[in-house]
């Protein structure tokens, strides 16, 4: 029972990240894409115990380096992740 939550905007720009985190359950996963990858250094993400992923090319485009609790994945792994999730919620 696990939901993949996709956040695609910067948490300093709007409250999509916060809304997602409010409803993020313990076994859920968080995937950051597009400007959402800026959230790897957002204070609210640092304390999460859930698995966090970010698209590698989107990070590279913004010079965002690998962070402790965020795993960078490629598009193929993204597809795998969404296939294995019970459902996907895109916060947009």
């Amino acid at each position: 029972m696990s939901i993949l939550h996709i956040v695609r905007s910067n948490g300093f720009n709007d409250d999509r990240l916060q809304q997602c985190l409010n409803l993020l359950a313990e076994n859920d996963k968080l995937l950051l894409i597009d400007d959402g990858v800026y959230n790897v250094s957002h204070p609210t993400c640092a304390s999460l115990t859930q698995a966090i992923f970010a698209i590698d090319s989107h990070c590279q485009a913004r010079n965002i380096v690998e962070q402790g609790n965020v795993k960078q994945i490629n598009i193929e792994e993204f597809v795998n992740l969404s296939e294995h999730a019970e459902k996907v919620i895109t916060w947009q």
Partner: peptide
């Protein structure tokens, strides 16, 4: 509450925001 909404979400097939 947000906690109660969180607990409801798994019963849906599709969630749109």
């Amino acid at each position: 509450s947000a906690e109660q909404i969180k607990a409801l979400l798994p019963q849906f097939d599709v969630v749109l925001t």
